[in-house]
């Protein structure tokens, strides 16, 4: 039977490989019955604006290959994490202020803005991943 764990992911990178791996952990983690929370901050946040291009720059060869081959896009993975596995994907409130964007400017699968105090409190006792 399923063992529920808490998985917290903090996503700050704009590299394709990091975004992809974070999306893979979020989606597979969420559909396997875990409580997944993602905090999207720093350079990653711009990709979660409504209609934003998800062609993130590749850091290396693998990122280039991901684009050429038929890997699911990282944005699709996060969307599936939220829709199929009830993952909670939050924008970082600080990054939103810096970028000058509102919650309504973000993709519809994004939950309400979250601060670090709440994220750290939620993450207590669970797995924490950072990308």
């Amino acid at each position: 039977m399923m063992g529920t764990e808490r998985i917290s992911i903090i996503l700050v990178s704009e590299d394709r490989e990091d975004l992809q791996m974070a999306g893979m952990i979020a989606s597979v983690g969420a559909v396997s019955g875990n409580e997944v929370t993602v905090l999207v901050s720093m350079n990653a946040l711009k990709y979660f604006l409504k209609g934003a291009d998800d062609k993130a720059p590749a850091a290396g060869q693998m990122g280039e290959m991901l684009e050429r081959k038929k890997a699911p896009s990282f944005k699709t993975l996060f969307e599936q994490a939220a829709e199929l596995g009830d993952a909670r994907i939050h924008p970082c409130s600080m990054a939103m202020d810096v970028l000058g964007v509102e919650w309504r400017d973000l993709e519809t699968f994004m939950k309400e803005p979250m601060g670090l105090t709440k994220f750290l409190d939620d993450a207590k006792g669970g797995q924490v991943w950072s990308f």
Binding site: S27, V31, P72, L77, Q80, L84
Partner: peptide, 17 residues
């Protein structure tokens, strides 16, 4: 076919739902 990990799993899960 042709989809990379975790594409096939996610397609299965959507089908299972």
């Amino acid at each position: 076919r042709g989809s990379f990990c975790p594409g096939p799993l996610m397609e299965l899960i959507a089908g299972m739902k």
